[in-house]
Structures are given as structure tokens and as C-alpha cells.
Design a protein around this nucleic acid. Structure first.
Length: 421
RNA sequence: GGAGAGGUGGCCGAGUGGUUGAAGGCGCACGCCUGGAAAGCGUGUAUAGGUAACCCCUAUCCAGGGUUCGAAUCCCUGCCUCUCCGCCA
């Protein structure tokens, strides 16, 4: 959520930022409502001040045994005026809020301006894409052949858009999760196991609501939501908290299933495990002082890259253009890995700085070295998504005899076996 | 799910409808004292909004309504916590 003061003070900058994010919120409407709101606040607060004073006078008179009926009658009128103004004020607050909650975060100045992904900038590539001398099978074929991936069973159970791993496939996922959690823990991230079902308020806090309402699974009885990413649960650990001085930066990591309706996505890159309604992911979250957040963003990307480097999978890192940024992000790097079977770069991690956007929505604050209370910056990054990582391993580590080698760092997590099949 | 009890500042804990933003204590910060420390003494110690301004004003004692000239205090609703019972991995 943007600070109303910031909107009031730099309306033009806000407007252009919003435009670069492909949003068309009416900023002038907010400004005029805000002006009116402050006018009423001044008026109603004057009246309240008067009421407080006179109420004390009434108390004095009563104590002295004097009659205060006339004053009380006058104050009744003042009281009525106050409640009427208070109700106007509530309406204005509501009206402003209903606009402001839909405004996306503004892009950072270092983000390339562009309306879509074609303006994204590749900032680095790592590893060598190996040309295999045989036809690499896509993951859904090699997975079924090795009997470690059963998409049919998943469909039987849950309909389209789900996957089911079994045997060494299931074990591979568990091993990868453990490898990633261990790697991040060793870098100082506190491991968190948080709820997967959260309140609307938490979804609002990290910016999924109200905009992404239709992309999420919701429970009918209690209006709870299934998390689309562990970012929601982990970041909201600090919802409505004032973090003591010296506690920042906070670094957390957690593993969770991610539930996404993927409404309207049918038909596009949907084969196999690539786009599904439920997948596992390891997610990193940082809460940091504003001054450091862009340095922290770089190290967070590097932290995610460590995993791919450890596995020895080639990838590239792109900086997203303004129009491709998510609702809450001010700056974002995508990490894409090369998948040899479907011969595509697959997005496997998205690492973002939200600045104070989420902190404002969550009402999360920290005490800085001058004891001032301020909003921290929040960041998060996948580290990494299993439903993309497993296909990449099945394809990139495929051998011409139809077996799949286990990346070396994963072998200790799989009882020492070197390959599947 | 059933029955009770309860939600007050960083924490504990007072609070008859009328200078209570809130006693007292603890903690914390600073100062005095000391060779240094402890103890002791003194001072300070919430958040948000209105404002150029922590000068002032307003709001906030779980949240939202209501009664009243005036609500931490009375009424209603919701949420949460605790205890006991039930159920359960």
C-alpha cells in the first residue's frame, strides 16, 4: 500500500509509476477525497476538543451541586454534529481505502521501463547448456517411463493440473527440499514451518488480496485461503508487530505446498508438471532496514542461485521490466533454468523487493537506531520451486540409456544412489 | 463441539461513568552518587492522525456497534486466549 502522504506530496511521480505498471488508478480522485477528509478532521476535532473541555466543566458544576442542564443540552447538539461528521469521515476513509488498496507498488528507478516481458533485461547467465547427442525426452515421458511420475493418477485423484510423484520421484522431491532448506539455513535463514491456510487479512498483508482473489483457493465455511506461496505465511509472521531495534535483518526460509487456481491458463505451457494447481516450493523471506534493501535483494538472488550452482544446472537471471512486475513488487529478478527436454527456459525463481509496500499493508514496523518507528522493507525469493526443478533434473540429467543421474549434492539425501532407472 | 473465566502500556497489575493516556511495580534509557560496580536517589520511557512543528489538538485500555453532555468503566455483536469436558492425528 502506498503512503497517502507520498501520494499527496508527489502526485506526478505516482501517476507515472502507476502508468509504467500498466495500472490506471485515478490519483486525482484520491487527492480530492483526501483534501475533503482532512477538512472534516479539522472540523470534527475542534468540536471534540470543545466537548472534552465542556464535559469537564459539567463535572465540576455537578460536583459543586450546580445545575448544568443548559450546558448539557448544548452539548447534546455538539455530540450529534460530531457523530454525523464522524460518519462522513468513515465513509471518506472507506472510499479512499477502496482506491488505494488497488494501487500497485511503484517500480524502483533502476527497473527498465516497458509494458511487458519483452522489455526484461538478462543480467547474467551461468553454466553451459550441454548439447546431448540423443533426443532428450520431456519430463512427463521420462518420468512415466521410470515410474516415478504418475500424472494419470493425479488426474484421477484431483482432476487436471496436478502431479503425483512416487518411489524415487517422491524421494527426489524430499531430497531437494532438504538440500535447499539446509543450504539456506547454513546461510543464516531461520527455518519456519508455518500454516498453509491463512486469513483474508494475511492475504491482504502481502498483497494477494484484493487483486488476486480469483487466483486462489478459498474455503467456503470460514473464508480462509490456501496459500499460493509460503511468502504469505512467513512474511505475515511479523504482521502488526513492532520489531525491536537490532533484530533486523530477519531472514527466514520455509517449505510449503503452493495452491494456485491458474484460472484461464489452460492450454499454455501446461504439459506435465510445469503449470499445476499445487506444487511444492522453498521460499526465502527477508525483513530489512530500508537503507539496505537493494543490497539485500542482490544477495537474495545470489542465495537462490547457489542452489542451481550446487546442482550444476545452467540458468540466466533477468531483471523484470516495469510492466512485468507483480502487483506488490518494486523490483524483481527472475531466475530461469534451461530445460533440455522441452528446450525452454523455465522460470524457477522470482526474487523481489517490495520496499515498504507489504509492511504498510501488514502494519509491520521496526524501531530504528534513533528509536523511531518505521516500516521495514520486505523481500522474498523462491529457493526454489520443485515443480520446475524436478522436470529440469529429469531432462538435464537424462542419459541416453533412459536413466537419470542424481546431481551429486543430492546423493547424500537419497541414500547414496547415483541414478534413477 | 459443550461449560466456565478473561482480554488494560515492552511486561506484571490497579481502575466507584466525570482532569485516567491511564495508579503502582518490573524492565529499559539517561543523570546523580562511586576508584569502579551494586544498592540508593532523580528524570524520562506508547502508537497513529491533524499540523511546518513529539508547541498544541484529536483518537486509541481486543475489534465493531449502542446508551450518555461525558465510556477503560454500562449494553449488544464478533474475534482471540485460558481452564475443564468431548472429539481427534
Amino acid at each position: 500500500m502506498l503512503d497517502i502522504k507520498r501520494i499527496r506530496e508527489n502526485p506526478e511521480a505516482i501517476k507515472s509509476g502507476i502508468k509504467n505498471k500498466n495500472d490506471n488508478t485515478d490519483v486525482d480522485k484520491i487527492l480530492s477525497l483526501d483534501e475533503k477528509r482532512r477538512e472534516i478532521i479539522r472540523e470534527v476535532e475542534d468540536l471534540k476538543s470543545k466537548r472534552n473541555k465542556v464535559s469537564q466543566e459539567i463535572a465540576q458544576k455537578k460536583k459543586a451541586g450546580e445545575n448544568a442542564d443548559k450546558t448539557i443540552a448544548e452539548m447534546k447538539a455538539v455530540g450529534d454534529k460530531i457523530s454525523s461528521l464522524d460518519s462522513d469521515l468513515r465513509e471518506l476513509d472507506e472510499a479512499i481505502r477502496n482506491i488505494i488498496i488497488w494501487i500497485p507498488n511503484l517500480p524502483h528507478q533502476s527497473v527498465p521501463v516497458g509494458s511487458d516481458e519483452s522489455a526484461n533485461v538478462v543480467v547474467r547467465e551461468w553454466g553451459k547448456i550441454e548439447k546431448k547427442d540423443f533426443k532428450v525426452l520431456p519430463h512427463w515421458k521420462i518420468g512415466e517411463k521410470l515410474d516415478i511420475l504418475d500424472l494419470e493418477a493425479a488426474t484421477r485423484i484431483s482432476g487436471s493440473g496436478f502431479y503425483l510423484l512416487k518411489g524415487l520421484g517422491a524421494k527426489l522431491q524430499r531430497a531437494l527440499v532438504n538440500y535447499m532448506l539446509d543450504t539456506h539455513s547454513a546461510s543464516g535463514f531461520l527455518e519456519i514451518a508455518a500454516p498453509f491456510i491463512v486469513t483474508a487479512d494475511s492475504m491482504f498483508g502481502t498483497g494477494q488480496l484484493p487483486k488476486l482473489e480469483n487466483d486462489m483457493y478459498k474455503t467456503t465455511e470460514d473464508s480462509m485461503y490456501l496459500i499460493p506461496t509460503a511468502e504469505v505465511s512467513i512474511t505475515n509472521c511479523y504482521k502488526q508487530q513492532i520489531i525491536s531495534h537490532g533484530e533486523l535483518p530477519i531472514k527466514m526460509v520455509g517449505h510449503s505446498p503452493c495452491f494456485r487456481r491458474e484460472a484461464g491458463a489452460a492450454g499454455k505451457d501446461t504439459r506435465g508438471m510445469i503449470r499445476v494447481h499445487q506444487f511444492d516450493k522453498v521460499e526465502m523471506v527477508k525483513i530489512v532496514e530500508p537503507e539496505n534493501s537493494y543490497v539485500e535483494l542482490e544477495t537474495l538472488v545470489e542465495q537462490a542461485e547457489k542452489i542451481l550452482q550446487g546442482l550444476n544446472i545452467p540458468y540466466r537471471v533477468s531483471m523484470l521490466a516495469t510492466g512485468d512486475l507483480s502487483f506488490a513488487a518494486a523490483k524483481c529478478y527472475d531466475i530461469e533454468l534451461w530445460s533440455a527436454g522441452i528446450e525452454k527456459y523455465l522460470e524457477i525463481s522470482s526474487v523481489s523487493n517490495f520496499e515498504d509496500f507489504q509492511a504498510r499493508r501488514m502494519n509491520c514496523r521496526f524501531r530504528d537506531k534513533d528509536k523511531k518507528v518505521r516500516h521495514p522493507h520486505t523481500l522474498n525469493g523462491s529457493g526454489l520451486a520443485l515443480a520446475r526443478l524436478i522436470p529440469a533434473i529429469l531432462e538435464n540429467f537424462q542419459n541416453n540409456d533412459g536413466t537419470v543421474s542424481i546431481p551429486e549434492v543430492i546423493r547424500p539425501y537419497m541414500g547414496g544412489i547415483k541414478q534413477i532407472g
